[in-house]
Simulated scan of single mutants.
Amino acid sequence: MTDGAPLLEVQDVYAGYVKDLDILQGINFKIYPGELVTVVGPNGAGKSTLAKTIFGLLTPHQGSILFQGKQIAGLKSNQIVQRGMCYVPQIANVFPSLTVEENLEMGAFVRDVPLQPLKEEIFLRFPRLAERRKQRAGTLSGGERQMLAMGKALMLKPTLLLLDEPSAALSPILVNSVFEQIKQINQGGTAIVLVEQNARKALEMADRGYVLESGRDRFEGRGIDLLNDPKVGELYLGATKAH
C-alpha cells in the first residue's frame, strides 16, 4: 500500500494563526493512495491545524505540501477541491436551514454532472439520510449531521478525504456507527486522513498513524504498532501498553 509516490506529502511545514507564532513546528506527514492514516495527540498538539493547512485554510510560511506530486501550499480551498481533496470540519459542516438533499447538492457545487445518481449513491451508503432527505439539516441528531457532512464531501468523489474529529460529542453507539462508515468509505478506495481525539479507536482501524506533540510528528508507524507502543500508551493514550 505504501509502494510508489505518496498521494499527499507534507514536508517541514511551519504554520499558525498568528504571525510569528507557529503551531506547526516543522511537521512531516504523508499518505499513500487508498490509505487510512490517523493523526492523534493531546489537545493543542496541532492536529486540526495540520488538516486546515493541508486544505488551504491556513498558508504555511515554510515548507511544502505536495498533492498528487504538485505543490498546493498557498492555493485556496476551492482550487484544492477541484484537484480531488475534500475536508469535513468538526463544526459548521452542514447548512442547517437547507434540507438533507439540498446539502448534498451544495456539496457538488463544482461538478458539472447529473446530481441524482450521486445523491442516490449517498442515500444507499447512509440509509438514515435517505429517510430524512426532505428534513432540514438543523433538525438532525449529531450523528446524522456527521453522516450528512461526510455524504456532502463524497458528492465530489474525492481522492482524499480529510476528517477533523468526526466522533466529537457523539454517543458511544454513534461513534461506532460513524467509524464503521469511515472504514467503508476507505474500503471503497478513498484515501482518508482522520484527525481524532478518540486515539485508541482511530489507531485500531488505521493503516498508519502519526502522534503529534507541540506541532511536531513525534511518532509514526502502523496503527496497531503505535497502539501497542508503551511510550505512546503512557504519553497519549492514558495508559501503559494495551494488552
Score class of each variant (00 low, 15 high):
residue 113 V to N: 01
residue 114 P to N: 08
residue 56 G to K: 03
residue 190 T to M: 05
residue 194 L to N: 13
residue 218 R to Q: 11
residue 113 V to Q: 11
residue 33 P to A: 13
residue 101 E to A: 11
residue 110 V to D: 03
residue 187 Q to E: 15
residue 115 L to G: 11
residue 140 L to T: 08
residue 216 R to F: 04
residue 140 L to M: 03
residue 230 P to M: 11
residue 236 Y to H: 11
residue 193 V to E: 02
residue 232 V to H: 06
residue 198 N to P: 01
residue 220 E to D: 01
residue 110 V to N: 05
residue 189 G to A: 10
residue 164 D to Y: 04
residue 125 R to P: 08
residue 27 I to M: 12
residue 73 A to Y: 02
residue 168 A to V: 12
residue 2 T to K: 05
residue 98 L to G: 07
residue 91 I to N: 14
residue 81 V to M: 15
residue 83 R to M: 15
residue 237 L to R: 03
residue 148 L to A: 14
residue 152 K to R: 15
residue 35 E to K: 02
residue 144 E to R: 12
residue 171 S to G: 14
residue 202 A to S: 10
residue 142 G to C: 13
residue 23 I to D: 01
residue 90 Q to A: 03
residue 214 S to W: 10
residue 9 E to I: 09
residue 87 Y to H: 13
residue 234 E to I: 05
residue 45 A to T: 05
residue 223 G to C: 11
residue 50 L to D: 06
residue 195 V to Q: 07
residue 172 P to Y: 08
residue 70 K to D: 12
residue 209 G to F: 09
residue 166 P to Q: 11
residue 207 D to N: 09
residue 25 Q to A: 10
residue 13 V to C: 04
residue 219 F to I: 08
residue 106 M to Q: 08
residue 11 Q to R: 15
residue 141 S to A: 07
residue 2 T to P: 00
residue 154 L to M: 09
residue 23 I to A: 01
residue 193 V to W: 02
residue 220 E to S: 11
residue 28 N to H: 15
residue 222 R to Y: 12
residue 241 K to D: 05
residue 226 L to M: 05
residue 231 K to N: 11
residue 143 G to K: 15
residue 57 L to R: 04
residue 77 S to D: 11
residue 162 L to S: 10
residue 51 A to D: 04
residue 157 K to P: 00
residue 45 A to I: 00
residue 93 N to R: 07
residue 81 V to K: 12
residue 216 R to D: 05
residue 209 G to H: 07
residue 55 F to K: 05
residue 132 R to Y: 00
residue 141 S to Q: 07
residue 84 G to D: 07
residue 121 E to D: 13
residue 88 V to C: 09
residue 46 G to S: 11
residue 175 V to W: 13
residue 160 L to R: 06
residue 31 I to W: 00
residue 170 L to T: 09
residue 17 Y to F: 15
residue 91 I to W: 10
residue 233 G to W: 08
residue 153 A to L: 05
residue 21 L to R: 14
residue 198 N to M: 10
residue 35 E to N: 01
residue 122 I to L: 02
residue 91 I to R: 15
residue 88 V to S: 07
residue 217 D to Q: 10
residue 135 Q to H: 07
residue 15 A to T: 03
residue 97 S to T: 15
residue 36 L to C: 12
residue 233 G to A: 10
residue 43 N to L: 06
residue 235 L to G: 10
residue 119 K to V: 15
residue 111 R to S: 15
residue 164 D to E: 08
residue 175 V to T: 14
residue 161 L to Q: 12
residue 158 P to D: 11
residue 109 F to D: 06
residue 179 F to G: 02
residue 169 A to M: 12
residue 156 L to M: 13
residue 16 G to Q: 08
residue 15 A to K: 03
residue 6 P to Q: 09
residue 35 E to T: 04
residue 56 G to Y: 04
residue 116 Q to Y: 12
residue 215 G to E: 03
residue 166 P to A: 09
residue 20 D to K: 06
residue 23 I to E: 01
residue 142 G to H: 13
residue 86 C to F: 08
residue 208 R to I: 10
residue 53 T to W: 02
residue 171 S to W: 06
residue 126 F to G: 01
residue 195 V to N: 09
